[in-house]
Design a protein around this nucleic acid. Structure first.
Lengths: 223, 223
DNA sequence: ACTTGTGAAGCATTTCACAGCC
DNA sequence: GGCTGTGAAATGCTTCACAAGT
């Protein structure tokens, strides 16, 4: 085992979230133990990769038996910091921001949307789901008590950089950026980009080049 | 130069879409020529990487001068098959499907949403933006004249695999999957996954491990 | 008998560094 | 002088294969 914060490959972190999803289902189904080989059937990652990924964080398995589902689930949840509430501010109350705000998948998750912001005066004050749309100008001020640590950027590309800057000034230290542009942040801030158009464009490249084209598992990924 | 379909690294394809975005802006701004070094300032990719990426597809640059913006833009657009209309079917008229259907970014793009499908009888027949929501049961039949070649899955995880199967039966050969589950498809089908929860979970890992954490450029990411 | 954890090998991608061209 | 295209080196990630544990 290594001291856990050595330096973990990004693809490993991305796969860890996949293992978590599997383990949650296995736990729900009452499975007690699982081997890396059986896990492959559930998540599509080859056993050697699963073992290597887990080995970055400790020795969780029992030779001859495999992994204890509950225990591994608990440890990975802790490692990914999903054992505590994670507070999200959504910036942009357009189509996408509204869809994200209403995403049902957050219900039994550590993610909690604590605020939705926009700079459009026609939207500020209106309700979106059960949230009042707040004035983007007041982000820093409001986040002093709101204490979101994750920001989701769902604004047009032109506004993304400025929104990112404001998020960081407000104390957010991780950003999920849906705007179709790269944002620049200091190196101590984590950013992930989700870019619809780029994904579609990559798909187009593969069209009608069908023979032996490979697949993807979101690396940036990212896939 | 290589025969263009040798085997292109996925990260290269993903970056190509970034170069395209830059080139479109440069073209709009009237810039005639750009070197890989100046390009770095616009897209954040190091010059050697840009040159290597482009070299997979041909020799587009002039030593001493750089790349002709218009010419490179035209060639990359062609290579990515963005010089022709690409027809998209969206499956799922929930929050996300509706947001995607209304995405303004498709306006001046080769992407055209040709149909939105759902299996909920309360939604079928209603209008979403300027599209009637169609019966998912009739996907194959309708797509015979609709001729979508790209499918976007915006349904709950439980339904994703079945929707994927139906899309493929309907003649679609590339899929953008927003459902939080892996879908299995034959190897001649291109799939990209966009998974909100996984992205957020990866961000959580980085929280409060701020010192010297790296960034991402969506290779799935994609990181 | 079965399975883990892990060095070492293998493969993929990025970066270097420079010959050649404008 | 400035820039490209590209072999070769460096880095990063995945897979192999096996000793060790149960």
């Amino acid at each position: 085992m290594r001291p856990a914060s050595d330096k973990i490959p990004q693809p490993t972190l991305s796969r860890l979230t996949l293992y978590l999803r599997c383990l949650r289902r296995l736990a729900r189904e009452g499975v007690n133990t699982i081997s890396s080989a059986k896990m492959e059937a559930h998540c599509g990652i080859v056993p050697a990769q699963i073992r290597k990924d887990l080995s970055y964080f400790g020795e969780f398995g029992k030779p001859g038996a495999g992994y204890d589902v509950q225990h591994l689930l608990a440890r990975l949840t802790e490692i990914m910091q999903l054992d505590r509430e994670q507070r999200i501010a959504i910036i942009g109350a357009g189509n996408l921001g509204a869809a994200l705000a209403g995403y049902a998948g957050f219900a039994q998750s550590p993610f909690r949307i604590v605020g939705i912001f926009d700079n459009n005066f026609n939207k500020i004050g209106r309700m979106l789901w059960n949230h009042e749309i707040l004035d983007l100008q007041r982000l820093s001020e409001i986040n002093q008590h709101m204490r979101a640590n994750i920001g989701i950027i769902a604004v047009p590309a032109e506004a993304a950089q400025e929104v990112a800057d404001q998020l960081l000034k407000s104390g957010v230290s991780a950003i999920l950026n849906f705007a179709p542009t790269l944002i620049e942040v200091p190196p101590d801030v984590a950013v992930r980009n989700v870019d619809l158009t780029r994904e579609l464009e990559v798909l187009c490249y593969h069209l009608d080049r069908l023979t032996s084209s490979p697949q993807d598992a979101s690396p940036n990924d990212d896939q």
